[in-house]
Design a binder for these strands. Structure first.
Lengths: 156, 156
DNA sequence: CAAAGGTAGTTGACGATTGAACCTCTGAGG
DNA sequence: CCTCAGAGGTTCAATCGTCAACTACCTTTG
């Protein structure tokens, strides 16, 4: 009923790794998100946007740059930035060089939110992921998902 | 304003790995979910539930077992199973040994959906993740997230 | 410089997830 | 047995993400 060629199933070690990945990432993201919300009042995606903005020399980025940097849809970025604007962490401005464009600008309040949220968040990333692995294993994680990200980067 | 001890920031290699992980998982889950929906009409969480049920000798599992196995909330499992029931892939039954309990039972239709979905899904997992990594690197991924999953397993 | 097609972004409706409130049932202690 | 703390599930409301229009602008082409 299936086909004559053997399906390319995962062997049991690959299977175990894949399941561990699914379970680990599910729990990790849930935990990071909840700690950020409880301690700083922002979600993980909101935090990531503030980080990107803070890393820009001008403290501002185009909506599309945020979207591609985070691998989120444009629509999602619109909504997330709207929430951040509602709490005063970012402001929207028309882009001076492109009449279609909008830039999101980090406010002083937004920078303050980030300064207060970052240490605890980084600690959590260490406690629940980075420091539970050997440096070599964590570097391998970087290589694997770097390859995945690049492969799935800009298609379709 | 922060504190006198230096914050435990990530070094630039760890930072790069963490970002690659975020971007890679975001794109990976989006892709796997969309391919499943397009080709088989079910979402990734729905697929995972069918897999768990199919692996049970009796083809049935308690709702709570599904929840802890997937690291999903009970509420989420209730909703997901309801969707699967609506398309005829699963049936709900009262648990004979525990009056509070409910078991989800894989139907023949559900098994058929799974049989048709699985090869393509496994191919996708290989194409976008497993086979882009060396076997050693993918084993490292398993170790890292296994440790994370265990650490975040049954707290709170 | 007009038309056409593509890019940037928003909007609104809908579907999925969360969290808390709520019932029911179980199991342990007195 | 009776009580009562707690587990198993569901439900409702609120929040978040997705998808399909839709507007506005840019850019290429002839």
């Amino acid at each position: 009923m299936m086909d004559t060629k053997t399906a390319r199933w995962l062997d049991s070690e690959q299977q175990a790794s894949w399941r561990a990945f699914l379970s680990g990432t599910t729990r990790l993201f849930e935990r990071l998100d909840r700690e950020l919300r409880d301690r700083s009042g922002i979600s993980l995606p909101e935090y990531e946007i503030l980080v990107r903005l803070s890393e820009s020399p001008s403290g501002q980025l185009r909506m599309a740059e945020l979207a591609s940097s985070l691998a989120h849809s444009r629509s999602r970025v619109t909504h997330t930035v709207a929430r951040l604007e509602a709490i005063g962490a970012v402001r929207r401005r028309a882009c001076p060089t492109d009449g279609r464009g909008v830039v999101a600008l980090l406010t002083d309040e937004g920078r303050q939110v980030l300064v207060e949220a970052a240490p605890g968040h980084v600690d959590a990333v260490r406690d629940y992921l980075v420091d539970v692995a050997s440096p070599e294993d964590f570097a391998a994680v970087g290589r694997v998902f770097g390859a995945t990200a690049q492969l799935l980067g800009d298609d379709r």
